[in-house]
């Protein structure tokens, strides 16, 4: 199956990656050869997928004082690359209404 360059760009947007224009062709060719290899799966008859229904799925107790409660919240906060007080600091997420025009 031939994957167009536009489609590669769209996938990159979904994956939050940026593929430089000059690499799109190479990516498209690699996708072709890899996806071509996947085609042989089409000869398999459809069947129900059973194994993902695990036999016994242990559930944790609905309790905040479990013995394995994670206690290193402070260390996580200390590890943020940029922070303000106890929050991870990020650049503007929502643009000002006036800036959008």
């Amino acid at each position: 199956m031939k994957i167009a360059k536009d489609e590669i760009k769209h996938i990159a947007t979904l994956a939050k990656l940026e593929i430089p224009e000059e690499n799109l062709e190479k990516f498209s060719q690699e996708f072709d050869s890899i996806l071509g290899y996947f085609d042989e799966l089409n000869s398999l008859a459809p069947r129900p997928i059973l194994s993902i229904q695990a036999k016994k799925q242990p559930l944790r107790q609905d309790d905040t004082n479990l013995p394995n409660h994670f206690e290193k919240t402070e260390a996580i906060i200390q590890g943020f690359p940029e922070k303000q007080d106890r929050f991870a600091k990020v650049p503007t997420a929502i643009k000002d209404h006036k800036d959008q025009n």
């Binding site: 996580i76 997420a93 643009k95």
Partner: peptide, 26 residues
């Protein structure tokens, strides 16, 4: 790159959030 470790060579103040994700991951 917000929670664990910054990627060197990216100035987070130069981007909006979406661009920061994309540039850092790329």
């Amino acid at each position: 790159t917000i929670r664990y470790s910054p990627v060197y060579g990216i100035d987070s103040q130069q981007h909006d959030l979406e661009k920061l994700y994309i540039h850092s991951r790329s």
